[in-house]
Design a protein around this nucleic acid. Structure first.
Lengths: 110, 110
DNA sequence: GCGATGTACTTTGTTATACTATGTATTTGT
DNA sequence: ACAAATACATAGTATAACAAAGTACATCGC
């Protein structure tokens, strides 16, 4: 099997699915901070998100007003930036879910 | 809903899924030429592939030896470049299918 | 016969996103 | 004291979709 092509493919497949997964997770359960999201996705899906991928992604989602963030000081350690999904984010993730299901059906029908 | 973001998202989602769909279609039924593939995907999935997307995609698949092509002269009109999937392509599309199903399951489980 | 439309392939430039690498700063374990 | 883990950020690179434009032949309507 062409492993190199396959690995590139899984990377390309993330373009789109990552934002979908992150929004879905935030929809499912209120608050996450970035570093935690990486671990949560890894735990739930065995998919590794590089830090250099997630932080810019969260900034994009924030610019699009799909998520909001707030800094939370810790009793000890580095402050965390917590994200919550907005109403607009909920509407988008709903459309995404529909589109994804439709896509999955058509792919399976091939 | 943030329509602009959603449209960008569906475009990003194609990165990966298009090659998967094309290989799946070729696996399913022997021979297609580029222009025909665009219409076939449109018919089967309601997804529009720009010509400037498909032709470079087919070239990449050929470079990776996942497909082969041959020119076929027509009695009238422009010659067509017909594509067939290779053994390597079959192996890759098998892995892709497995990965896709796994991804779909984990996304649905969120 | 001529312009518009459809068929069929190609290429160039733009844009979006994932990834690698690097950097900063704090805390915990040994 | 040093390594590893926690937590965020950014710069540079690679990849792939897309719009736009070009080439070339065929057909259809007028």
């Amino acid at each position: 099997m062409n492993t190199e092509f396959f690995n590139k493919w899984t990377s390309q497949l993330k373009k789109g699915t990552l934002s979908f997964m992150v929004l879905s997770i935030l929809k499912d359960k209120g608050e996450y901070y970035g570093y935690d999201l990486i671990n949560e996705v890894k735990k739930r899906t065995t998919i590794e998100i590089a830090e250099g991928t997630l932080y810019p992604l969260m900034n994009r989602l924030k610019e699009e007003k799909l998520v909001e963030s707030k800094w939370v000081e810790q009793n000890s350690g580095i402050p965390r930036k917590y994200y919550t999904i907005t109403d607009s984010g909920l509407a988008v993730v709903k459309e995404m879910t529909q589109y994804w299901n439709h896509l999955n059906q058509t792919i399976n029908s091939i």
